[in-house]
Computed example of a mutant assay.
Amino acid sequence: MILVDGQRQDTVSALDRGLLYGDGLFETIRFVGDAAPLWPRHMQRLARGCARLRLPVPDPALLWREAQASRGDMAQAVLRISLTRGVGERGYGMPAAPRVTRIVAAFPMPALDAAPYRDGVRLHLCEMRLAEQPRLAGIKHLNRLEQVLARAEWNDPSVAEGLLCDARGNVVSATAANLFAVVDGVPVTPALERCGVAGVLRAELLEAFPGTRVRDLPLAECLGAGELFLSSSVRGILPVQAVADKVFAPGPVARAMQAHWQGLGFSTEQA
């Protein structure tokens, strides 16, 4: 079900600033039954994004009620919350008192295959480079054109994701997941102060595994890592099997983080 400002519908105004300018934010949240194990972290990131974009922060209790109404009786669901600055005057100037458009939409959780969690996934090394914009780095704003263009670079169904770098040649993330590497036995995840999305599962793992370092990760160092794996609040921890012709194998750090993810209440089993 899709709710727009609390009403069951699936349309917004053609003058909505989210459509015209990508002026807004979104969160994609996995539900397991009535529970969303990472909900508090999603709400924290949404509040940070609202502060960054000067948007009013929605009431988390209201979002929770609408999330449950939208989810209905789905045993497992993926929920998307989108906030835009709403309808305003033509032009880039912000409305003095924005009336935020709130969209809450639930979809059935896609079928999961246990093999990628066990054996890993293949990545395409993207030609697309992420532009640096510290003001927008970390938050999940509505403009995802870089990811759309990167995803268009491959159509091989055996390739699950694409590896994205910035203009300096540092690895940033996959198109729809954060990335971790194990370098000389130490877990590392790329710094995201200049570009990229700071995922909520990434935040959870950084707290649970305090030995993980956050720093720039040059592509050559990434490709020489002992382990490589992705983190996603919907898909969980996916070991990387290969990046182009470079082969990897799942290792103990990825397995430990998979166990932590499952301990939160997630699984690769379909209800």
Rank of each mutant, 00 (worst) to 15 (best):
H42G: 02
H42Y: 10
M43K: 01
M43V: 05
M43N: 01
Q44K: 02
Q44T: 10
R45K: 10
R45G: 02
R45P: 02
L46W: 08
A47P: 04
R48K: 05
G49R: 02
G49L: 07
G49V: 06
C50S: 08
C50N: 04
L53Q: 01
L53R: 01
L55N: 00
V57N: 00
V57Q: 15
V57W: 00
P58G: 01
P58I: 00
P58Q: 01
D59S: 00
D59H: 00
P60M: 00
A61F: 01
L63N: 01
W64C: 03
W64T: 03
W64A: 14
R65N: 05
R65M: 01
R65H: 06
Q68V: 05
Q68S: 09
A69S: 03
S70T: 03
R71M: 08
M74R: 05
M74H: 10
A75T: 04
A75Y: 14
A77P: 12
A77S: 13
L79F: 10
L79M: 04
L79R: 03
R80C: 04
R80T: 08
R80H: 06
I81S: 04
S82K: 12
S82C: 15
S82I: 15
L83R: 10
L83G: 02
T84V: 12
T84A: 11
T84Q: 09
R85H: 13
R85F: 13
R85I: 05
V87P: 03
V87I: 10
G88Q: 07
G91H: 04
Y92R: 05
G93D: 14
P95A: 05
P95H: 11
A96I: 07
A96W: 06
A96N: 15
A96T: 10
A97K: 09
A97D: 11
P98M: 09
P98Y: 08
R99W: 04
V100I: 10
V100P: 08
V100K: 11
T101Q: 08
T101W: 13
T101D: 14
R102Q: 13
I103V: 05
V104E: 06
V104H: 04
A105I: 09
A105M: 08
A105G: 13
P108M: 03
M109Y: 12
P110K: 05
P110N: 03
L112T: 15
L112S: 13
P116K: 06
R118C: 09
R118D: 11
R118Q: 15
R118F: 06
D119I: 11
R122D: 14
R122P: 15
R122C: 10
R122T: 07
L123E: 09
H124K: 05
H124R: 13
C126Q: 06
E127F: 15
M128W: 11
M128V: 04
R129T: 14
L130F: 14
L130P: 08
L130T: 14
A131K: 08
A131T: 13
E132Q: 13
E132T: 03
Q133Y: 10
L136T: 01
L136W: 13
A137W: 03
I139T: 12
H141W: 07
H141M: 08
H141Q: 12
L142C: 12
N143G: 14
R144F: 14
L145M: 12
E146Q: 13
E146A: 09
Q147V: 04
Q147T: 11
Q147D: 10
V148Y: 14
V148N: 06
